[in-house]
Design a binder for these strands. Structure first.
Lengths: 345, 345
DNA sequence: TTGAAAGCGTTACCAC
DNA sequence: GTGGTAACGCTTTCAA
């Protein structure tokens, strides 16, 4: 017997009063007689009454639910941002429906549709690896659905974004390697069409150029974030006839297996090859050598995404405040990239 | 102008037909005239009509949504299980509402209530660190809400569970250390009242006893999973007057900083101290020394949780199939615990 | 202070 | 084949 949930109606019937009165009593409206109110309250408590959010939502056209779409929750970055999003949403009285795309465009599209059918009031998303066209996103915009893109975004779509300056961050990371005396610096990048990856490559290239170091396509290696392709590309790097002495890696997730392979192949880090990466996952500090990595303010990215989304959701009709928040990054220097004494140490 | 979403009613009015006809056409009911159907379909397409799931849910008392409550999504284990849960749920046509407790009992309780108000059809949860009484869970059971507990469960509550045999796993891990020649083995455990931690301690103790090795409370160190307390406890371990030569750690998350401290203090792993841990996070393979760890079948835990939950949700009234699935674990031996040659290598 | 009734968007039953 | 209507659980006028 799947207990039929108790409704406001049941309470009304039991107490021989009207539904409206019960509703009012439950919500603490001032005009209700204290006796009535306490009777209602007591019975509600006793029957363990739970208001049906669905009915409320339908009536008010407000679900207080937001949808979050990410490529994959086993990536620390996305899980951690979701953590922060859920936390902020909860504090603001919102619930979170999650969807993962598993890096597939198709699933991104259907997940989006499912969330919309569920009447989420807005969507926070990070594009999948395989997403290379954006009609589904543009449709959201046309339909005026509050939307925030974070991390994996796309150029030329007019929507709120929470991102970091990937170009600058990569530029800085590369200069750091140069400052450590590296002169043949490579880049272990993500898939070729991924904006974030390309922006970082651009920063890396310009840093090399600025310092009159050789820039070559043959020093850029693309992996698709899977372990197999990372291993393959890393092996290619170790097999270069003229070995690199510095390497920028697209993310810590990719750097871990890369470092492992380097060690196996007898490449000493940082002596033979200085390495910097992106994301600064917590474990990176505990590696040996500690992995130098560009930190992104994960918590703030989540908070900011929620803030921008709620700004849209709660905006008076007609105004759709769109803005791009560029969050600060910071290169955390650890042993993996340090070939020179730290000043003062 | 927040575009009022187009409804079935709008379509009906436009086409001068009744709401019921539109509804039937949209759902592909056979009795509809082809012309009518195609007209409806075309207009629906054109107006980008999206059925309102809320209304459907209210009517049918079926939301096809499940709630998932976990302590914290930045723990790899929980994020990865959620990954698997969301995936399985999606395939079964369900959506997932997530909630995090941040290890707090209070938040666990309120999150639970929120999910119920949202009319989730069932709940998959892992208890928070600070949860030491279970009325909130028992209330679910009394109300016949489909429920599955995974990983962090509790004894004596009659509900479906997906767990591993922590006792046996710890027993095995400890015997492995003994097999490597360790005789003074300690345990870096979780909080004192955490069932999972205590089960592992019991397995550890019994393994020591079986091999006539000293069992002492002073060799069990409790941390609360935070980095600070892990560091503190690790320092205590390195400060023992008679040093340990083997250590079982409650989880990889805890082992990482512990190994780091060991290295800093000049404790060689595995030569001075052999270490095994639990969870086998992907990065553990890339550590040096590689961290030996008890693998839990994360993907299967998620799948199984969904399976058990759906079994309850879809069970005919009256039957509430409850079962406990004990998932297999496997000790993955890496360098951190190997003090003897591998046979045949 | 309370009650009756309309309505949120949809489906399903019963007529025609 | 199609249309009217009740119902899901709730809030909110409007009247009393």
């Amino acid at each position: 017997m799947k207990a039929t949930p108790v409704t406001i109606k049941d309470i009304a019937r039991s107490l021989n009063i009207s539904i409206s009165t019960v509703s009012r009593a439950l919500r603490g409206m001032p005009e209700i007689h204290p006796d009535t109110r306490s009777a209602v309250m007591r019975l509600a408590e006793e029957l363990d009454y739970q208001p049906n959010q669905l009915a409320k939502s339908l009536l008010k056209s407000r679900t207080r639910t937001i949808g979050v779409i990410v490529p994959n929750l086993s990536y620390h970055f996305f899980a951690a941002v979701l953590n922060s999003i859920e936390d902020a949403a909860m504090r603001a009285g919102y619930s979170v429906l999650v969807g993962q795309t598993q890096e597939s465009y198709l699933r991104e599209k259907t997940t989006l549709e499912n969330l919309l059918r569920s009447q989420v009031e807005g969507i926070i998303m990070s594009l999948s690896r395989d997403t290379d066209h954006y009609e589904h996103v543009e449709r959201l915009i046309r339909r005026n659905i509050p939307l925030v893109l974070f991390d994996r975004h796309a150029e030329g779509i007019d929507v709120s974004k929470v991102i970091v300056d990937n170009y600058q961050a990569a530029f800085g990371a590369t200069e750091h390697l140069i400052g450590q005396g590296c002169s043949r610096i490579g880049f272990l990048a993500g898939p070729p069409h991924l904006l974030l990856s390309n922006q970082r490559i651009a920063g890396y290239r310009d840093a090399l150029r600025k310092h009159q170091l050789p820039v070559s396509d043959r020093h850029v290696f693309h992996c698709d974030y899977t372990q197999e392709s990372t291993v393959m590309q890393t092996l290619s790097i170790t097999n270069l006839s003229e070995p690199l002495d510095g390497l920028v890696v697209i993310s810590d997730r990719v750097a871990y297996p890369a470092l492992y392979i380097m060690k196996q192949r007898g490449v000493r880090v940082p002596e033979d090859l200085a390495v910097v990466s992106f994301n600064n996952e917590p474990v990176s500090a505990f590696f040996s050598p500690g992995l130098s990595s560009v930190n992104q303010p994960i918590n703030e990215i989540g908070l900011e995404s929620v803030r921008l989304l709620l700004a849209q959701i709660e905006a008076p009709d007609g105004e759709v405040p769109r803005q791009t928040q560029v969050m600060p990054t910071q290169l955390i220097v650890r042993e993996s990239s340090q070939r020179r004494e730290m000043p003062g140490s």
